[in-house]
Amino acid sequence: MLNDYLLTVISNIGMISLLAISAYILLITGEISFGQQAYFGISAYSGAIATTLWGWPFWVSLLFGSLLAGIAAGLVSALTVRISGLYFSISTLAFSEMVRLFLLKFSYQKEIDGELLGPNGAEGFGGIRWIFDNNISVFQYTLLIYLILFLVIICLFFIERSGLGMIFRMIGQDPMLTRVHGINPVNYKVFAAVLAGFIAGLGGMLYAHSFTFIEPQIFNVMLGVHSLAYGLIGGLGTVFGPLIGVALDIGLLESIRVIHGYRMIVFGGLVAIMLILMPRGILDEKRVYRLRLALRNWLHV
């Protein structure tokens, strides 16, 4: 049987994968966001408030938190969609810091069973006890995380193979040429941002209920930088790319205790090397195309 430490690592990989996929969606539309952790945080707080303080069912809270994150992402995107490149990246960073600073001041507590619960600024938000109250084991919760991750991957796999996924990639490669094809990139960029925000939200809400305690500091810029790097390492050719990035970082670097203290040095070096040798990651578009072709030939044989 898997021990709790290993299960925690595996579940962490699953939850952070959702955040990495969220950054990946924006990367394929040609935008670098340093702010996906904001939507992760918005959903973590709102979802946890819904289950812990309002007594809402888990699934409703999951949807509520993720929708709230998606709406926030859509609003930010609608305001910033006409800027791109560095300016867009800075605006996402600024928004994520606004959210983090807001959470540092945000206090909303209620007495539940004689205990004061709810977010309380820098002290964070503890007592998110849904998994204990419902006798959910770590193993069961890990399965739940991977079920949601699986559903997200299936949806994105089909989106990527559809005309919509192709439009995302067209915008990422050449926005002006995309316009010449009768496509208004603005609508699709906002849609991609909402989708990315929603998926980050799923991860955030699951994260809050997994760790039972959250604080604003968790959702700092480094979380956003990591989520971005996962796609750049794993590859931008398929939705499986960011998962490779997460598995390499959390599964390998964080879990091997010998190099644990040097994780950030190794990870930073890895990102630098990858950007030089494989600027679009391990599973970039060309490799994915070759793999797909090889798979097709193999199936044909």
């Binding site: 559809s162 005309g163 439009i167 067209m170 490669q173 040429l177 094809h181 009768g182 496509i183």
Partner: peptide, 30 residues
Amino acid sequence: PEGRHLFPNLTVRENLFTGNHCLGRFFLGK
């Protein structure tokens, strides 16, 4: 456009699909 401007990361088939959009769909016709 000048310079042939294709989408290099898409296949020939997918590049042809990109011409389908002018007919007012949200998704590209395949």
